[in-house]
Design a protein around this nucleic acid. Structure first.
Lengths: 185, 185
DNA sequence: GAGGGTAAACTACGAATGTTAGTTTTAATC
DNA sequence: GATTAAAACTAACATTCGTAGTTTACCCTC
């Protein structure tokens, strides 16, 4: 009955907290509604159903991850920049496993906001790679390689895919250094 | 009423077909039951609910992917073996997107069958890396790096994460060559 | 060949979730 | 103070997973 002063941002923020805490798969409208003190149908006044909430979560995550990466890369270059960028990427995924999973969804064709956030995220990456002399198609191939490596590691770490008991920080550094050396050659 | 002569293998095979065709998220007991000509509760005679079906699907996928990788690596070494192994990995993921996603689930602690299938899959990988002089901890770091790179690329390709229109086969070869060069250095 | 046991199917039901429809209440505006 | 729009509500429905209890078909033994 009473207006709760709810907003889309508040709903998405709560959803992010729940997804990070309980897992992306456990993100339900019922759980979000209970967390913000409202009945599930009321959420439809702010987000477009569960699908819309997931999309909004992806956008928020893409934006924040992009800011983190930009901050990490600023003022650095070469392997130094690559390592800082990679650390920022992995740190975000570890802090926000639920949101990280949300932002991995395919960009719906025609969703300009998502596309723009993705493009902004790539800017500092291309800038760092240009420092390696990689531009044009080579820059794109290199960006794809770097993104694949970082995403693959982070994803496998997230699902517990690394069974053997050997320091993961070292493995990550090994991976990033190998990619840095490989794309330079 | 009448016995359909159903078996676990038949149920899992049908589930694999549906998951590859309609997506892993669309895999429901109702859909599988309809495909094999049975009511949903009857599936419980063969698999342990949806969770059990997913686990069985993961095991089947792990086993088949392991065989593909072993076949690809046999008789090769060095970068040649690495490229063949990588191609087999990506080919399987493209042919069986639903099963590939199923086998990505975290290995439940105590599930020896899953653990064994995972270990078998790693054997040829370690063998190839040993050819690079990478053994012990270095071999593990390298295996993690390789797996991260392949999984990351394949996963991003699967969800349509590569937006730019530039040949993906070339990007994949670039990635594998970069990792091969990087872990050798 | 008859009878019993087991496997495998069924119907019926309940719980969780997402969603829509229609209603009511609050708050802002004229 | 009356009107209107936003935002909440209740009620209801569809889908899906899962369980309980029942029935039927096949196989093995006697």
């Amino acid at each position: 009955m009473a207006r709760r002063g709810l907003s889309r941002a508040a709903v998405v923020q709560t959803a992010a907290r729940l997804a990070d805490r309980d897992g992306y798969d456990a993100l339900t409208l019922g759980a979000v509604a209970a967390a913000v003190g409202v009945r599930p149908p009321s959420l439809y006044n702010h987000v477009e159903g569960l699908a819309g909430l997931r999309r909004d979560l992806a956008l928020a995550g893409l934006t924040e991850l992009g800011e983190r990466i930009r901050d990490a890369a600023v003022g650095r270059s070469g392997e130094d920049a690559l390592l800082a960028l990679a650390d920022a990427y992995r740190a975000y995924a570890r802090e926000h496993p639920g949101v990280y999973r949300a932002l991995q969804r395919a960009a719906s064709p025609g969703d300009d906001e998502i596309a723009a956030a993705g493009a902004r995220l790539l800017e500092p990456v291309f800038a760092v790679l240009a420092g390696f002399g990689l531009e044009g198609d080579a820059g794109i191939h290199a960006a794809r390689a770097l993104r694949s490596a970082l995403h693959g590691f982070v994803e496998l770490e997230r699902v517990g895919g690394f069974g053997i008991d050997l320091d993961l920080d070292e493995s990550y550094r090994f991976l990033v250094r190998a990619v840095a050396a490989g794309i330079g050659a």
